[in-house]
């Protein structure tokens, strides 16, 4: 069941929005468009048919400016930009002083002493710091110690007990001696009688020889069979078979080139990756 929309019950709302400052900038936008159109027409040396309305109502007629407005405009703008000679990043300290006193008077807030005097430098330091993290200049990185750190003499503040290094040698020597003496002078205690050991060794040797003979004879016979079968194959058949096979070596089939470790692998890897070291550069907490 359809319900009827009663207009009277609807509130009157403007659902359309405009860009910010639209109306404030509209006159100048129109003025600009008009000027552009006029210039284009003149440059094209056209009869200005389509601009007849403009010709009839010239800019001067639509918008009136105070006398000498444009002559004084630049000076007016300049007068509203204090300390123009300063860098745009630097703050106007005199304006801040006023602002500070105003805040202090009206809201009772205070700032640390010389807060605003040092603020520009601190901001610049932060800006420089953020720029550094974004793009790294390696020439600059080479000269990292240019500030306070460069002024501090490199000094070893740590001390060691008297004759420490001499004692360190002795300690290590003792360790070595202990290790070597234990390895050289190790005594073995015979828990099993010697005749039992000899019998066991002899029995194991016989068993090993028998196993070896059986293995040799079985592989020889099978290899002989294979040789006979291969003799029956033609060269073409063998080549055809090899073409069909993937003859590349797999990693498991490849003979080990070197099983030795590299020097860096002898001890535990230190494992400081680039990412690691840069993440570690988060800094002082």
């Amino acid at each position: 069941m359809e319900s009827k929309i009663n207009l009277q019950n609807l509130t009157r709302e403007n659902i359309f929005q405009i860009p910010e400052q639209y109306f404030a900038s509209l006159p100048s936008a129109i003025q600009k468009r008009l000027a552009e159109a006029s210039n284009t027409a003149l440059n094209n040396d056209k009869p200005l048919l389509e601009y007849s309305a403009i010709e009839e109502t010239t800019i001067d007629h639509i918008f009136i400016t105070p006398s000498d407005y444009f002559e004084n405009l630049y000076q007016k703008i300049q007068s509203k930009i204090p300390n123009q000679s300063d860098s745009p990043i630097k703050l106007n300290l005199s304006a801040l002083d006023g602002f500070e006193s105003e805040l202090g008077n009206k809201h009772g807030h205070t700032v640390p002493e010389n807060y605003f005097e040092t603020l520009p430098n601190r901001i610049m330091a932060r800006v420089a710091s953020s720029e550094t993290t974004k793009s790294l200049d390696f020439e600059e990185l080479d000269n990292a110690e240019s500030g306070i750190l460069a002024s501090i003499p490199k000094q070893n503040i740590f001390q060691i007990p008297d004759n420490y290094f001499e004692k360190l040698n002795i300690q290590l020597d003792e360790d070595d001696v202990i290790e070597e003496s234990t390895s050289e002078k190790t005594k073995s205690i015979r828990l099993i009688p010697s005749w039992v050991r000899y019998t066991t060794v002899a029995a194991a040797s016989v068993l090993l020889l028998m196993t070896g003979y059986w293995f040799y004879s079985s592989t020889t016979s099978s290899s002989q069979e294979c040789t006979e079968l291969l003799c029956n194959l033609t060269d073409e058949e063998i080549l055809h078979y090899l073409e069909k096979q993937d003859t590349r070596l797999t990693t498991t089939q490849m003979p080990a080139i070197s099983t030795k470790h590299t020097d860096s692998e002898i001890v535990d890897p230190i494992d400081i990756s680039d990412e690691d070291i840069l993440n570690a550069a988060e800094g002082i907490e």
């Binding site: 790294l136 390696f138 990185l141 990292a144 860096s264 680039d274 070291i277 840069l278 550069a281």
Partner: peptide, 26 residues
């Protein structure tokens, strides 16, 4: 060679370390 880290990363790390130390000292 000691750490297995690239020289670039080491330079960046050192540079940032110096900055942080100086900030702390200030």
């Amino acid at each position: 060679e000691i750490t297995g880290t690239s020289e670039g990363a080491l330079k960046a790390s050192y540079h940032l370390a110096v900055k942080k130390i100086e900030e702390y000292l200030i």
